[in-house]
Design a protein around this nucleic acid. Structure first.
Length: 330
DNA sequence: AAAACATGCAAAG
DNA sequence: TTTGCCTGTTTTC
């Protein structure tokens, strides 16, 4: 279920707790036994994300490539770093100032940094990372017994990471990683350059498919899922069904920059906050209820926050699409 | 408590 | 086009 921000946070977790460590690798479930055997005893050297894809490097020419799909999750335990704004309570989100503006909102790739004030020294804990995150107290024993269908377990002296339910879990060499990255569209959190922005516009601009479909096409731009798609379209008051070639390059550039902004916020907070500038009260409501968290996503039949029109929903390309028929008129 | 649903994707048919 | 993944969350009974 996770969209791009979650995968970047998982990559960061691996950098913080596993990079530079020798790992024991196994497949408690058995379905990745051969792959785990090849990883076993090697050093985890690198962790990066592009779109919804995670790449863990194990020295030269050996990568673990993971895609979580809908059900996938990583569970960390042991001596691990924890983002305390998430914690077990589902968290307080970023400080807001008197204008209701989010303070410290990242504005680009340069600000996607690992060193966040909210992440302290490693401590004994457990951390579930999927589309949402939940921290809890550490299991009594280390390493803990695998729970459920653990495809891969990566274990250091002090930390363990269990992968369950992935759509993709495979080993690649450098060329294999390059091939995957090549078929993926640019990801502003991986590459916030102007070239990446131009690449997105180039990949999108000529398409006759609806903009709602193209935004979720991972070969056009990385990391946008069903929620960010719906919310981006509303934020730009765009008719979801307009052919992408008719959207205009200016708007495509604006969509890229807004995605950069939302993704940076998602990575920073661990939450998909798609309504900027909420006051404290609205923020509390948003945290308490999904229906109060977004402009249109999962708000079918509820009044549009801007014009009061009933939010519409239909299925397009097998996924539910939410939009305001008035604000996002053709 | 049980059922329905989902913030994807790839493989199978 | 359908199925499998294999789980957490939300909704319904």
């Amino acid at each position: 279920m996770p969209e791009g921000h979650s995968i970047h946070r998982i990559a960061r977790q691996f950098r913080a707790n596993f990079a530079g460590r020798t790992v024991r690798a196994s497949s408690p479930q058995g379905r990745f036994a051969a792959g785990a055997a090849r990883l076993d005893g090697r050093e985890l050297t690198e962790a990066k994300a592009s779109g919804k894809h995670l790449f863990l490097g194990f020295g030269p020419e050996l990568w673990l490539h993971v895609h979580l799909g809908i059900y996938g999750a990583w569970d960390f335990a042991g001596e691990i770093t924890v983002d305390d704004t998430i914690a077990s309570s589902r968290g307080r989100i970023g400080q807001t100032n008197q204008h209701g503006t989010v303070v410290g909102a990242a504005r680009g790739a340069a600000e996607h940094e690992d060193s966040l004030a909210s992440i302290g020294a490693p401590r004994r804990a457990r951390l579930h990372m999927a589309e949402t995150e939940k921290a809890s107290s550490a299991p009594a024993e280390f390493p803990p017994e695998p729970v459920g269908q653990v495809r891969v377990r990566l274990l250091t002296d002090t930390a363990v990471a269990d992968l369950r339910g992935p759509t993709v879990c495979e080993l690649l060499d450098d060329a294999g990683v390059a091939a995957v990255l090549d078929r993926l569209g640019p990801d502003p959190a991986l590459d916030g350059s102007e070239q990446a922005e131009d690449e997105f516009v180039r990949r999108a601009a000529g398409k006759t498919q609806p903009i709602a479909v193209v935004l979720m096409d991972q070969s056009v731009v990385g990391g946008i899922g069903n929620i960010y798609r719906a919310e981006l379209l509303f934020r730009h008051r765009l008719d979801p069904f307009r052919r992408t070639k008719d959207v205009g390059e200016q708007t495509l550039h604006e969509l890229w920059r807004d995605w950069d902004h939302l993704l940076a916020e998602g990575i920073r907070t661990g939450q998909m906050l798609t309504m900027d500038g909420l006051d404290e009260q609205a923020l509390q409501r948003a945290m308490a209820s999904r229906a109060d968290r977004h402009w249109v996503y999962k708000r079918e039949g509820l009044p549009c926050r801007v014009c009061g029109t009933s939010i519409a929903m239909t299925e397009i390309a097998g996924r539910k699409l939410y939009w305001c028929p008035f604000c996002q008129k053709p």
